[in-house]
Amino acid sequence: MSRSAVRALPSALSWTCRQCRLNSVQSAQARHATLPIVAQQNFSTTKSIRVDAQIRAAPEIDLSDANAVPARIIPSSPSYFTASPVFNDHVLLLQSLVKKHASLPTAPPNQTPRAVWLKLSQYRSSTGEKIAASKYSKVLDLLTRLNRIHPRVRPREVKQVLDRFRRPGSEEVQKAKPGKIDEYGRSIGLGRRKESTAKVYLVEGTGEVMVNGRSIVQMFPRVHDRESALWALKVTERMDKYNVFALVSGGGVTGQAESVTLALAKALLVHEPALKPALRRAGCVTSDMRRVERKKPGRLKARKKPAWVKR
């Protein structure tokens, strides 16, 4: 039986084993290799490029004449061929400025001028380029570094560049109302954490602490909670310099203790604003905005899925 005769069998009847399939592939390759190139050309439908290509070398550069036409035209911006040339120009500009003025003295954190930079969306629309948030954060870092140069010695070019990146209308951005010490010498701080809210009245004193009219030991039996409630006074070593009167409501024990932390830190900042960096390092200034994630339908909790049951 010839091969063609077998191939003529209906496809429903005939099949090919794996060994035979492998063999057919190998033999096809072997046949291909032995065929001459000329024969191959017959199969190609397109014209060969090699035949028509007319490549000429560029003329020799004339180094003696400065005004001669350059070898190739160079774009003015080095980032012309990048995907986001404006952004890269900005980065290069800022980097050069930072490098240039690295030796200038910087102002301490509490004396650096308050700066509000362009938002990512604003920057995107002003440049017309799609810039990743992580890339823009590098720009912000450079801007912050430049902003730290002491205002007295800040060069004009730096000021001009910084102004270009300032958010329009940022001068009128609301500043936090400065706290006041009332007629009894108290300062008030408010703090929130989880579901609880704390209001702390802080007055100079000898280190007495009352929470909801009770001693702190009765209010927070766990030492950890007590420590976190008075953390602001502890890190600044002012435990025996102030009396604390706190009113807490809502939430659980931990939430209440940590809301007192925040409220106490804010009240302390009214008395001693210079403590802000120390308190920020201690983590007493930033409010924790996290709340309980909502429960979803079809789930047991926010994320928990019901157990898989066969049928």
């Binding site: 091969r3 077998v6 069998l9």
Partner: peptide
Amino acid sequence: MSLSVCADCLSRLR
């Protein structure tokens, strides 16, 4: 009904 031998093998018998 299909063949009990692969088509290629069948063709090589000869």
